[in-house]
Amino acid sequence: MAINFAALFEDADGAMTKEEAVYAILKISVMINGHEDDRERALLESLIKGSKTLRGSKDGAQSAIQSIEQRLAGADSTETLNQLAKDACASLEHIGLEICKSIFTQSVDIMLADGSLHPNEKALIQILAEQMKIPEDFVRMVLSVMASKNQY
Protein backbone atom coordinates (compact mmCIF):
# COMPACT_ATOMS: atom_id res chain seq x y z
CA MET A 1 0.00 0.00 0.00
CA ALA A 2 1.37 3.41 -0.96
CA ILE A 3 1.55 5.91 1.87
CA ASN A 4 -0.19 9.24 1.19
CA PHE A 5 2.32 11.59 2.78
CA ALA A 6 0.36 14.74 1.89
CA ALA A 7 -2.63 13.44 3.87
CA LEU A 8 -0.43 12.42 6.79
CA PHE A 9 1.06 15.94 7.05
CA GLU A 10 -2.19 17.81 6.56
CA ASP A 11 -2.72 18.46 10.29
CA ALA A 12 0.88 19.52 10.95
CA ASP A 13 2.03 23.14 10.46
CA GLY A 14 4.55 23.75 7.70
CA ALA A 15 5.55 21.16 5.08
CA MET A 16 5.54 23.67 2.20
CA THR A 17 8.55 24.17 -0.05
CA LYS A 18 10.32 27.53 0.24
CA GLU A 19 8.78 28.70 -3.06
CA GLU A 20 5.29 27.61 -2.01
CA ALA A 21 5.61 29.36 1.34
CA VAL A 22 6.86 32.62 -0.21
CA TYR A 23 4.12 32.67 -2.85
CA ALA A 24 1.43 31.73 -0.31
CA ILE A 25 2.31 34.63 2.01
CA LEU A 26 2.48 37.17 -0.80
CA LYS A 27 -0.77 36.02 -2.42
CA ILE A 28 -2.64 35.90 0.90
CA SER A 29 -1.45 39.48 1.53
CA VAL A 30 -3.34 40.52 -1.61
CA MET A 31 -6.47 38.48 -0.77
CA ILE A 32 -6.88 39.04 2.96
CA ASN A 33 -8.91 42.26 2.80
CA GLY A 34 -11.67 40.52 0.85
CA HIS A 35 -10.96 41.98 -2.57
CA GLU A 36 -7.98 42.17 -4.91
CA ASP A 37 -6.98 45.81 -5.28
CA ASP A 38 -5.28 46.64 -8.60
CA ARG A 39 -2.27 48.25 -6.92
CA GLU A 40 -1.76 45.30 -4.56
CA ARG A 41 -2.04 42.84 -7.45
CA ALA A 42 0.40 44.90 -9.57
CA LEU A 43 2.89 44.94 -6.70
CA LEU A 44 2.54 41.17 -6.25
CA GLU A 45 3.36 40.68 -9.93
CA SER A 46 6.34 43.01 -9.68
CA LEU A 47 7.62 41.19 -6.58
CA ILE A 48 7.23 37.78 -8.22
CA LYS A 49 9.13 39.02 -11.26
CA GLY A 50 11.98 40.31 -9.07
CA SER A 51 11.97 37.60 -6.38
CA LYS A 52 15.31 35.84 -6.16
CA THR A 53 13.67 32.90 -4.42
CA LEU A 54 10.97 32.39 -7.05
CA ARG A 55 13.15 33.22 -10.07
CA GLY A 56 15.87 30.93 -8.79
CA SER A 57 13.74 27.79 -8.79
CA LYS A 58 13.85 25.29 -11.69
CA ASP A 59 10.59 26.15 -13.45
CA GLY A 60 10.38 29.80 -12.32
CA ALA A 61 8.25 28.52 -9.43
CA GLN A 62 5.33 27.65 -11.73
CA SER A 63 4.60 24.37 -9.94
CA ALA A 64 4.75 26.07 -6.53
CA ILE A 65 2.41 28.82 -7.75
CA GLN A 66 -0.05 26.27 -9.15
CA SER A 67 -0.03 24.19 -5.99
CA ILE A 68 -0.75 27.24 -3.80
CA GLU A 69 -3.40 28.58 -6.19
CA GLN A 70 -5.19 25.22 -5.87
CA ARG A 71 -5.12 25.43 -2.09
CA LEU A 72 -6.27 29.05 -2.16
CA ALA A 73 -9.17 28.21 -4.47
CA GLY A 74 -10.70 26.23 -1.62
CA ALA A 75 -10.01 28.92 0.99
CA ASP A 76 -13.41 30.47 1.61
CA SER A 77 -12.81 32.37 4.85
CA THR A 78 -10.32 34.68 6.55
CA GLU A 79 -9.63 31.93 9.09
CA THR A 80 -8.62 29.51 6.32
CA LEU A 81 -6.30 32.11 4.77
CA ASN A 82 -4.75 32.84 8.17
CA GLN A 83 -4.20 29.12 8.78
CA LEU A 84 -2.53 28.75 5.40
CA ALA A 85 -0.33 31.75 6.24
CA LYS A 86 0.65 30.05 9.52
CA ASP A 87 1.64 26.90 7.60
CA ALA A 88 3.76 28.99 5.24
CA CYS A 89 5.43 30.79 8.18
CA ALA A 90 6.25 27.47 9.86
CA SER A 91 7.93 26.30 6.65
CA LEU A 92 9.94 29.52 6.22
CA GLU A 93 10.98 29.68 9.86
CA HIS A 94 12.99 26.49 9.36
CA ILE A 95 15.04 28.22 6.67
CA GLY A 96 16.14 31.23 8.68
CA LEU A 97 15.32 34.64 10.09
CA GLU A 98 16.73 36.61 7.12
CA ILE A 99 14.29 35.14 4.61
CA CYS A 100 11.46 35.60 7.11
CA LYS A 101 12.32 39.31 7.49
CA SER A 102 12.49 39.72 3.72
CA ILE A 103 9.12 38.07 3.02
CA PHE A 104 7.50 39.85 5.97
CA THR A 105 8.63 43.19 4.49
CA GLN A 106 7.36 42.27 1.01
CA SER A 107 4.03 41.24 2.50
CA VAL A 108 3.59 44.52 4.43
CA ASP A 109 4.54 46.41 1.26
CA ILE A 110 1.68 44.67 -0.60
CA MET A 111 -0.85 45.26 2.16
CA LEU A 112 -0.06 48.98 2.30
CA ALA A 113 0.05 49.43 -1.49
CA ASP A 114 -3.57 50.61 -1.62
CA GLY A 115 -2.80 53.25 1.00
CA SER A 116 -4.99 51.80 3.75
CA LEU A 117 -4.83 49.00 6.30
CA HIS A 118 -7.89 46.74 6.60
CA PRO A 119 -8.48 45.05 10.01
CA ASN A 120 -7.82 41.64 8.38
CA GLU A 121 -4.49 42.98 7.09
CA LYS A 122 -3.57 44.22 10.55
CA ALA A 123 -4.38 40.78 11.99
CA LEU A 124 -2.33 39.07 9.26
CA ILE A 125 0.69 41.30 9.96
CA GLN A 126 0.49 40.25 13.60
CA ILE A 127 0.22 36.56 12.67
CA LEU A 128 3.21 36.78 10.30
CA ALA A 129 5.35 38.66 12.84
CA GLU A 130 4.55 36.22 15.64
CA GLN A 131 4.79 33.03 13.62
CA MET A 132 8.09 33.97 11.96
CA LYS A 133 9.43 35.44 15.22
CA ILE A 134 10.30 38.79 13.65
CA PRO A 135 11.94 41.08 16.25
CA GLU A 136 9.63 43.86 17.43
CA ASP A 137 11.99 46.71 16.49
CA PHE A 138 12.22 45.34 12.94
CA VAL A 139 8.41 45.15 12.69
CA ARG A 140 8.16 48.76 13.86
CA MET A 141 10.74 49.90 11.28
CA VAL A 142 9.02 48.02 8.44
CA LEU A 143 5.65 49.60 9.22
CA SER A 144 7.13 53.09 9.39
CA VAL A 145 9.19 52.80 6.18
CA MET A 146 6.50 51.04 4.12
CA ALA A 147 3.79 53.47 5.22
CA SER A 148 6.02 56.30 4.08
CA LYS A 149 6.83 54.60 0.77
CA ASN A 150 3.19 54.06 -0.13
CA GLN A 151 2.00 57.50 0.92
CA TYR A 152 2.63 59.27 -2.40
Binding site: S51, T53, T105, V145
Partner: peptide, 16 residues
Protein backbone atom coordinates in the same frame (compact mmCIF):
# COMPACT_ATOMS: atom_id res chain seq x y z
CA UNK B 1 17.77 57.94 11.46
CA UNK B 2 14.89 57.62 9.00
CA UNK B 3 17.19 57.32 5.97
CA UNK B 4 19.28 54.59 7.65
CA UNK B 5 16.12 52.74 8.60
CA UNK B 6 14.82 52.90 5.03
CA UNK B 7 18.07 51.53 3.59
CA UNK B 8 18.15 48.69 6.12
CA UNK B 9 14.54 47.66 5.49
CA UNK B 10 14.70 47.85 1.68
CA UNK B 11 17.97 45.93 1.67
CA UNK B 12 16.30 43.18 3.73
CA UNK B 13 13.22 43.24 1.49
CA UNK B 14 15.15 42.74 -1.74
CA UNK B 15 17.43 39.94 -0.55
CA UNK B 16 15.12 37.01 -1.27
Amino acid sequence: VFADKAVRILDAKNRF
